[in-house]
């Protein structure tokens, strides 16, 4: 037993912490808010597992008497989306995946590159440039829709011309590509902000050491900076994934019909006015629509808090 143990052990030590009443209040409140948060999800889950007659006739909170996954199957590949389409939401789900993956990766990598330049290769006026990039964080997206539509239209015409010349439009004019472009542009403000703040605390001596070791601009980025950016990388990916996956405004504006993303399809499914409202199918579709973001949070959530803290302490 060391001298320190001798001093601190024994009867004189009392447990420090809130009293019993305080604890009951704290846990009671936490429980209350957890319930408030979870009730809608529980209702959705229960409803999606009931046959339709049970939904319309029974209690919202009742457990399913005839357990069924049929509404899930229906939502996935039979539900009526819009007027003519009865192939379910599966196609739109993959539309979203095709849009979200490149948009998240490109905006995150560009944000990392911006953060690297804005902190380690500063140039005169870098603060002004960063300030202007932050506009993308604060600008209301409704205000950019029309100018964006004009620009996308120009890109589309360029794509047509390129297709005439080379036989390939380089993806310009394709609505998924359009959405990727829009999300990358409006995601850059946040991703740059995240990485800039993270790299501001990154020791510059490492960059100098790598320079003396003969590493080039991109070698330093790839070999030194990126491998040490895991927490902020995960934060940015979660943030971007959630935002882009859940986006409705750009999706409904710039992608129509078969190429619409999941959120738009869900809206169309729920708003279908022909026949009976299939609440169970709608609920299943809504859960499917929310699942990827939930999945990302569960997988990477523990990094999320850590990464936010890492960026928050300094910079």
């Amino acid at each position: 037993m060391s001298a320190v143990d001798l001093v601190t052990s024994g009867a004189g030590r009392r447990r420090i912490g809130p009293s019993l009443t305080t604890r009951i209040v704290i846990y009671g409140l936490l429980l209350l808010f957890a319930v408030i948060y979870l009730v809608p999800l529980a209702v959705m889950l229960l409803t999606s597992l009931k046959p339709l007659d049970e939904v319309t006739g029974g209690n919202m909170f009742a457990l399913p008497r005839h357990f069924t996954v049929e509404p899930w199957a229906r939502a996935w590949d039979e539900a009526r989306i819009g007027v003519s389409d009865t192939r379910g939401i599966s196609g739109y789900f993959f539309n979203s995946v095709k849009m979200v993956v490149p948009a998240v990766l490109i905006s995150t990598l560009l944000g990392a590159l911006n953060g690297y330049v804005l902190t380690k290769w500063t140039f005169p006026g870098h603060k002004l440039v960063f300030g202007m990039m932050l506009f993308a964080c604060f600008i209301p997206f409704q205000s950019v829709i029309i100018p964006m539509a004009v620009i996308l239209g120009m890109l589309g015409r360029l794509g047509t011309n390129l297709a005439d010349l080379t036989g390939w439009s380089f993806g310009l004019g394709n609505s998924t590509v359009n959405l990727v472009v829009v999300h990358v542009i409006y995601g850059l403000g946040f991703t740059t902000l995240f990485f800039r703040n993270y790299y501001a605390t990154f020791p510059s001596e490492l960059i100098k050491a790598a320079m003396m070791d003969g590493a080039s601009f991109f070698q330093i980025f790839r070999r030194i900076l990126l491998p040490n950016s895991t927490p902020i990388f995960i934060v940015t990916v979660i943030y971007q994934f959630t935002n882009i996956w859940n986006d409705f405004l750009f999706g409904s504006t710039f992608a129509a019909g078969d190429s619409a993303p999941m959120t738009v399809a869900l809206n169309n499914l729920v708003n279908t006015s022909t026949g009976v409202v299939e609440y169970n199918t709608n609920m299943a579709a809504a859960i499917i629509a929310a699942a990827p973001t939930l999945f990302v949070y569960v997988i990477a959530g523990r990094y999320f808090v850590r990464g936010l803290m890492a960026g928050a302490v300094k910079g």
């Binding site: 001596e205 490492l206 050491a209 590493a215």
Partner: peptide, 20 residues
């Protein structure tokens, strides 16, 4: 000349070892 071309090596105050 670029630092890497000067035929020098440097030991930094924080050692600047690559953590990864």
């Amino acid at each position: 000349l670029h630092p890497s071309k000067r035929d020098i090596a440097m030991v930094f105050q924080s050692y600047a070892l690559y953590p990864n």
